[in-house]
Design a protein around this nucleic acid. Structure first.
Length: 289
DNA sequence: GGGATTTGACCTAT
DNA sequence: ATAGGTCAAATCCC
């Protein structure tokens, strides 16, 4: 009896995962991701909720069956420093931070422990406009600076910040006074190709190495990652979008999708994949054709 | 061979 | 003078 009930519940779990996958796939059908912020937020919020509910069901299942082999939900519960709530919060925060980076917009929802560390610096526009042109371009006051706190990946290589949807090329690293860890400087990979002015600085916090302070400067004018198939028409106006998987922190890393922990890998792929060889969403949902 | 990373030197703001 | 940001040659890696 209990076994039949469990099978029934597992079917619901699988159904929920399928539902989340369908929702995620639907995101790819949006013609202009950058112009669909509200739709994206709703859809991904539902994806996260669905996966969270699924995870809770699995945890309940695992709690009711201590003698069975550990499920992946069981593994999640036993991730160091990663309880059920914090997992959900981490997924939410990762999504929020990533989408904010994608959409170049101020953040709205950040977990409290991270939010307290968060700040947004905007350069004084009058001062910017008054600046004379300099021979050496893109100095620190040229572009507005948007600072976000990004939690380090909980899976895979935790030495690099999670991907933010763009591809970056490191062009410098410097020891900064008062910081234990060096600051890394990145520019958009497509600066040469498209003249994309986007840059970012990544600073690991001394007191909390699991948090990265990521400062963005400039908007992306590139359209797509060269590593991703071109499927969108050229963006009208500035502030383009490159929704390809990115190597956010420097060195390449490999996707590691497996059958063992599908939800974890999905979350990992959506938020942390450092694969530089394509769209992480496509890794999750290969074209059906 | 080409692209990415490393790292010391250089430039500019304060 | 100093610190932060960028350049560019050297090196690494695929």
């Amino acid at each position: 009896m209990a076994k039949e009930k469990k099978l029934e519940t597992m079917e619901e779990v699988i159904s929920s995962i399928n539902h989340a996958c369908t929702l995620a796939r639907n995101l790819l059908d949006l013609p202009y991701l950058a112009n669909q912020a509200a739709t994206l937020s709703l859809s991904i919020g539902e994806i996260i909720k669905t996966l969270s509910d699924t995870k809770e069901r699995l945890m309940i299942l695992s709690q009711h069956d201590h003698t069975s082999k550990p499920s992946f939900a069981h593994e999640i519960v036993h991730q160091p420093q990663m309880g059920a709530t914090s997992m959900q919060e981490w997924l939410s925060s990762s999504y929020t931070l990533t989408m904010d980076a994608l959409l170049q917009a101020p953040r709205s929802t950040i977990p409290d422990d991270v939010k307290t560390l968060t700040e947004t610096n905007m350069m004084d526009k009058d001062a910017m406009e008054a600046l004379p042109s300099r021979s050496r371009k893109s100095r620190k006051v040229d572009l507005e600076k948007r600072t976000t706190m990004v939690p380090a990946p909980q899976f895979g290589n935790t030495e690099i910040p999670p991907e933010d949807g763009f591809t970056w090329r490191k062009y410098g690293q410097k020891e900064i006074l008062g910081y234990k860890y060096p600051r890394c400087y990145y520019r958009c990979t497509h600066q040469k190709l498209y003249g994309c002015p986007a840059k970012k600085q990544v600073q690991r916090l001394d007191d909390n190495p699991s948090i990265y302070e990521v400062a963005y400067r400039g908007n992306h004018t590139c359209h797509m990652s060269s590593t991703a198939p071109l499927s969108l028409p050229p963006q009208q106006g500035g502030g383009g979008l490159a929704p390809a998987a990115a190597d956010a922190g420097g060195g390449p890393s490999t996707s590691r999708f497996g059958a063992d922990y599908p939800v974890v890998d999905m979350a990992d792929a959506m938020f942390n994949s450092g694969s530089s060889s394509g769209n992480s969403m496509e890794s999750l949902f290969p074209p059906t054709d």
